[in-house]
Design a binder for these strands. Structure first.
Length: 239
DNA sequence: TAGGCCATCTGGTCCT
DNA sequence: AGGACCAGATGGCCTA
């Protein structure tokens, strides 16, 4: 997703070689070809460096290099003349750097995947206006409350069919005993809601799971970014 | 300009 | 050993 392409942080100077990484919306699971190429290059370089660093060359195949060594020919190279210790130190640095870049790539992909999942979640949440974009925390909180509201709706609907007694205390789908408020499982740390304090404390406001703090504070006034999911007969408790 | 949100980098820890 | 996951740091963009 990456809503703000221009919001991307500039790549580190030593990462400028990673062509394509700055693309605004790289597919989370499908790295760009440039990215793949770069990764391959990195791996090749790492292997090369490892080979150069290892005096024993345990995996050396009986190929050209082996022959060259047998012939006593030196491999011409960039490290010619450099002290061995300095060379290996530099090599270790390069390997370390290469691994870091790989880890960065993985982390970036991981976060892209996470954001994609978050986007998918946004897609199924009703917002007003429709194209309003919830922040990450809002999305999670809203989803939490929304699920709770739907569950509660089902419970009440089922209870209504069974009669008033069931409505009084019946457990609904997946609700175990009674109906746990969304907050009962919402351990949002400081955002911990204290839901049952007031029967009307809960809202579907994305920013206030089960009505933590004052709802007005979290529910932006006009033009509101979102509205409670109107079509759902939300329990009064959550309105 | 301050504060919120975000993407990215980074080092540490855990898991396979 | 390498990858996944996590949290802290950093810097950019946007808005009130």
């Amino acid at each position: 997703m990456l809503v703000k392409a221009e919001g991307l942080a500039p790549p580190a100077e030593d990462e400028l070689l990673l062509l394509g990484l700055a693309s605004p919306a790289p597919s989370p699971s499908l790295p760009s070809s440039a990215e793949e190429e770069e990764e391959e290059e990195e791996e090749e370089e790492e292997e090369e460096e490892l080979r150069a660093a290892s005096p024993a060359r345990p995996v050396e195949a009986p190929g050209a290099r082996g022959l060259r060594r047998l012939e006593g020919k030196r491999r011409p190279g960039r490290t010619r003349g450099a002290p061995r210790t300095a060379r290996t130190a530099e090599t270790a640095q390069r390997i370390k750097r290469s691994r870091r870049l790989k880890a960065n790539n993985r982390e970036r992909n991981r976060m892209h995947n996470l954001n994609a999942a978050l986007d998918a979640l946004r897609d199924v949440l009703p917002t007003f206006p429709e194209d309003a974009k919830l922040t990450k925390i809002e999305t999670l909180r809203f989803a939490h409350n929304y699920i709770w509201a739907l569950t509660e709706t089902l419970r009440l609907a089922g209870a209504a069919r069974l009669g008033p007694e069931a409505a009084a205390g019946g457990g609904g789908p997946g609700t175990g005993e009674g109906s746990p408020s969304p907050a009962s499982s919402w351990s949002g740390g400081s955002a911990s809601p204290a839901p049952s304090a007031s029967p009307y404390a809960c809202t579907l406001s994305p920013a206030s799971p089960a009505g933590s703090a004052s709802d007005a504070e979290h529910w932006p006034p006009a033009p509101g970014r979102f509205a409670p999911p109107v079509p759902v007969p939300v329990p009064r408790r959550c309105l």
